[in-house]
Design a protein around this nucleic acid. Structure first.
Lengths: 193, 193
DNA sequence: AATAGTTTGGAATATTCGTTCCGATGTTTT
DNA sequence: AAAACATCGGAACGAATATTCCAAACTATT
């Protein structure tokens, strides 16, 4: 057997976060994680300590890959409003095209674990603040470029759109379809006029 | 021991739904339910079949008591906009004053169980449709009374405000405070002008 | 007061779970 | 090629789990 790690840490965390997203923390067994990741029992405990630690690492991995999506959108040559529109379009598209996808690991973690695990609540809370700040910066960019006109501080709209985002994830898990989600986004974006 | 049931079904379901709300379905053990409800093991299995069945009944009980809150607000002598404002004020107040409350059982159920249990997804989906319809009726009432003026069908706003509602529950579980939640409601309600 | 009818407490069971451990398997280094 | 080292597969363990079962406890009826 190999002398150096045979598996790719990111691949493992991606597979694990998928399972956790589908079944939740308490709903997934170690065996399910083993088959999903292809890891052996010993390797998993050797490299990730235990189930709870693996969950936290999966959560942070998920958050980071989420951040990357936001950041690459942020770096595009668009004004803030266009970035906002593109983001929502992408989210709705993803939710519609992946109906078996169980929402968002961060939202699910907030629902299942944030009151039981302080570290989980920290990740979830940090994510909220970061995404809100990014959205706020997009909105004040659009205001500066006179694309939109605001009657409230940009920060408030950042909070509002983050709320809209969370709602979309819950609604798609509650059986909402494409037009329903699009309607929500339409009304939300119209608040900028 | 008594000849007729010693316990109140509603009290039991209320206690059970509180535990399920705090710890989720997979996170709560039968023993926790027993101490929370004061029931004996045999009585629980005698009256509620098993854990999964108890969960579904708790979910429906929670939904019904939720419905009652909405309906009693609906019966008040207010126009649709006032009802909407009162509802949001009540939700935010509840979230702020009960920081240990783990959000909303229906939202948590959507996140944890809707993809794993068809009956759960049915309850969650029905709740979505019913609440949306009620909100829509409030909005078209406000429009008829010329309190507001809409540029989209009332139904669309019902979907939007339901989304806002779901978002609030997730955000409060993600550590959002009073002003944050109030800001969200403010922007959402301003979409009606 | 005795019987019939129900609930209840707690022991018992079978299953599943997370975790540990060790011999086997392989790779790198000498 | 052999020693040193790390990983891996799978058995094994203990704890926790959901569920069943039965005798004891109690009330209402007769």
């Amino acid at each position: 057997m190999p002398k150096y790690k045979q598996f790719n840490r990111d691949k493992v965390l991606e597979a694990a976060s998928t399972v956790f997203q589908e079944k939740g923390y308490n709903g997934t067994s170690i065996d399910e994680i083993l088959t999903a990741t292809g890891l052996s029992r010993s390797s998993l405990y050797d490299s990730f300590k235990d189930k709870h630690n693996l969950y936290l690492q999966s959560l942070e991995f998920y958050k980071e890959s989420n951040d990357k999506t936001f950041q690459s959108l942020d770096e595009k040559d668009l004004n803030g409003l266009q970035k906002l529109e593109t983001m929502f379009k992408g989210v709705v598209n993803h939710l519609v095209e992946n109906p078996d996808d169980n929402g968002c690991l961060l939202v699910n973690a907030a629902a299942e674990m944030s009151k039981q695990c302080f570290k989980t609540s920290q990740v979830v809370c940090n994510n909220k603040d970061e995404v809100q700040n990014l959205l706020s910066s997009w909105i004040s960019d659009a205001e500066q470029k006179k694309v939109i006109k605001l009657d409230k501080p940009a920060k408030v709209y950042g909070q509002f759109f983050y709320n809209t985002l969370c709602g979309l994830r819950v609604m798609s898990q509650s059986g909402a379809g494409k037009t329903e989600l699009n309607n929500v986004v339409k009304v939300a974006l119209d608040s900028l006029n």
